[in-house]
Design a binder for these strands. Sequence first.
DNA 1: ATGACTTGCGCGGCAAGA
Length: 258
Amino acid sequence: MQIATWNVNSIRQRTDHLLRYLDEVAPDILCLQELKCTDDAFPREAIEAKGYHAAVHGQKGFNGVAILSKTPIETKCGLPGDPGDEHARFIEGVMDSDIGRLRVVSLYLPNGNPPDTEKYPYKLAWMDRLIAHAQELLRCEEKLVLAGDYNVIPTPGDCFDPAVWAGDALFLPQTRTKFQTLLNLGFTNALRAVTDQIGLYTFWDYQAGAWQRNKGICIDHLLLSPQAADHLQEVVIDKERRAEEKPSDHVPVRIRLT
DNA sequence: ATGACTTGCGCGGCAAGA
């Protein structure tokens, strides 16, 4: 079975892209980020017509995450740890699959730029909450997948030029250390379990011909609990989606579990 | 080069993204 994650940068602008992807790749589960719409405006009918259930945590204008699944989803919205946080950046679902019951999270970690504003402490605090919640989830010893746009460049090999990103919230030492702390709880970064190749990217900026020059970064990740990692067969970055008309600036990342 | 796009909001240019 396949699980994919995709920051679509507005679900309403990308509905046709999404439906093509469901037709052509047909992942069993698809985690979406940056819906940029309320639950009411989510294109639920078109997605259900393709044979998917949809769990949606939307927000007007910004953020917004969802989980699509061929099997029914039991859903919880929101990352624990701060009742005052109203950003729609986290949704957690449980569903059946051909390898058994799964718990899947679709997350959109805060960008954090510029780092000298309140945005960066918010990012770090969000990461602390994610670490705390992930630690709780690991105790269940389930097949668990934390998928999404982490807004973290884990290593220098995950961007085209580390010097360009040196002072950026996506690459600052504190950011990378917290991401490593999350991994150290016992997660497997799916991509890094199958390859040590550098220069594999999931995002290319719209500006300055970043796609044409292959000036990308790898910030969309799937983290697997030990029970899920035992089933990992393959990781694919669906890079060709970046060459479509009016694409998202992110491409899907997809794992196969057998 | 304080740039370059794209989107939402809402109808005038910002804010946000990464």
